[in-house]
Nucleic acid binder design. Structure first.
Lengths: 136, 136
DNA sequence: CCCACATGCTTGAGAGTTCAAGTAAGGTGG
DNA sequence: CCACCTTACTTGAACTCTCAAGCATGTGGG
């Protein structure tokens, strides 16, 4: 718990300090940037992020205020909302990425050897295996 | 990140649901229960928990409201505050512990073998090694 | 002795998260 | 075809955490 807490806090602090965004928001931008048309359904985005819909909805609201994400209503199914990464959002992500990547190395990968990386991957896979998504 | 987030959320959810306390509070109770006279200086407690003093102060305030912890002013150094676990607090911890322990097994230890436990411990130790406590 | 700095802790405001509830729209069995 | 369930998402309130600032209270050099 100490190790995972440390990693989480360190990454969050770095992003907050250098790019004024929590790690949660960074990951949202990443997922959107990788998606086709930089657009994803809200619920798919939530699933990919292991996030509750509520959390995502709140987060996207903040990201919209910053002009980094835009909500686009879906014509085919009007319950659905698309989240689209704006150019400003992509720029913010581009600016934040190098520092974040460096932090990831610093807190984790520079501290363990390649063999340990492999072992850690196996352990994490075991923890995540056969997971029924939790009721949210 | 997915694995550590899952573990965190699962443990937090279980404690919140079954014992109405966040994991943070549980750990505070644990540390106090293990301390001599079930009492610890606020700053020592914060250090042991890798918590900011601010976070601890807020948390202890809530725990005091519940009657689980008591603040005792220190006569020798009047800046210092002792945090003392009350009998009610100890009872709450006793009630919460079995469910929590079970959850810990369920989310982690039942999913990896003894060899992996050892490897994970080494990796976590490497992540935590030579850590200068962060400015808080 | 005393001023400046360090230490221990608290406070308040701003943010993010959670949970429960709410709205709206899409399916579906009788 | 219409009550009823499900799906998609949002909302609001309560709660925790963070950060910066704010007290007191010790302590050490001149």
């Amino acid at each position: 718990m100490g190790a995972s807490q440390l990693i989480h806090e360190e990454l969050d602090r770095q992003l907050q300090r250098d790019s004024s965004m929590p790690h949660t928001y960074y990951v949202i931008l990443v997922k959107l940037s990788e998606a086709k048309d930089r657009t994803l359904r809200m619920s798919d985005l939530a699933t990919e992020l292991n996030s509750s819909q509520s959390r995502l909805s709140h987060a996207v609201s903040r990201l919209e205020e910053r002009g980094w994400v835009r909500r686009v209503p879906c014509a085919a199914d009007r319950r659905v909302s698309w989240a689209e990464l704006t150019d400003d959002g992509f720029a913010a992500l581009t600016a934040a990425a190098p520092g974040h990547v460096e932090a990831v190395r610093r807190v984790l990968f520079d501290r363990i050897d390649p063999e340990q990386v492999k072992r850690l991957a196996e352990i994490c896979a075991a923890v995540l295996a056969d997971r029924v998504p939790h009721p949210r």
